[in-house]
């Protein structure tokens, strides 16, 4: 079993075979960090193919599942090495009154494959539940998605409640979804607007880098 073969299995979303391959590689003495680095590059390539729609959502989701399965096997082996912490912590959800979650699910996948730890709150999420979850997780970001024009005011409510609770500076509020725009983000005082799922991870990573610089 080679690292290249494992990457191919993950890319094609073959979860069980990927798990077997990962165990075999570790048994052969492969460096767990090297495995994860290599898989990160593979998922970056998968993400790029999806961005250009050369592959579609089901393929990316399957690759993501395979990746998660391999990470679960490899991660415990990292404890003896210099395991990297998550790039950032995110609570994410679709705002109250909105049941459309495909965009949120894609962003979640992109964040996870780029090293973020993500807590998914699902859809129809009360503004206060975003904040509660962020507090519990010790999140860096609150990500609020909305597909419908009449549900975007709920994004504004999250920011208002953060101010009311004196927590506004504790979290970066990221918004996205079809009816949202940079103009809307500016209007409600969101920290970041993501026009599509593909740019979320890069923009959020850059924001974290600025914070730590």
């Amino acid at each position: 079993m080679s690292l290249e073969e494992l990457n191919k299995l993950v890319e094609t979303g073959e979860t069980e075979a990927s798990e077997t391959a990962a165990r075999a590689l570790l048994a052969q003495g492969a460096d767990p960090l090297e495995i994860l680095d290599s898989l990160t590059k593979t998922m970056e390539r998968v993400g790029n193919l999806f961005a250009d729609l050369e592959i579609f959502l089901p393929e990316v989701m399957m690759a993501g599942e395979a990746l998660t399965a391999v990470v679960n096997i490899v991660k415990p082996e990292l404890q003896n090495t210099s395991g990297e912490p998550a790039r950032g912590k995110v609570v994410i959800g679709v705002v109250k009154g909105d049941l459309h979650e495909i965009g949120k699910n894609i962003v979640k996948l992109m964040l996870e494959t780029n090293g973020f730890e993500v807590k998914d709150l699902g859809y129809d999420v009360d503004p206060l539940d975003f904040i509660k979850a962020a507090e519990e997780m010790g999140a860096d970001f609150i990500g609020a998605s909305s597909l419908m024009t009449t549900t975007i005011p709920r994004q504004k409510e999250i920011i208002a409640f953060l101010k009311d609770k004196g927590l506004r500076d504790k979290y970066k509020v990221v918004i996205g979804g079809a009816p949202t725009s940079q103009m809307w983000a500016d209007m409600i005082g969101a920290d970041l607007y993501c026009e599509d799922a593909n740019c979320a991870a890069a923009k959020m990573a850059a924001m974290l880098d600025e914070k730590t610089a």
Binding site: K96, G97, D98, M148, T149, T150, T151, P153, R154, K156
Partner: peptide, 21 residues
């Protein structure tokens, strides 16, 4: 077209402002 405001208030889905809108 869809209204975002009615009587100067932002319409929020599922609430009274939506009925008004």
């Amino acid at each position: 077209p869809i209204l975002e405001n009615a009587i100067g208030q932002l319409i929020a889905s599922g609430g009274p402002t939506e009925i008004n809108g």
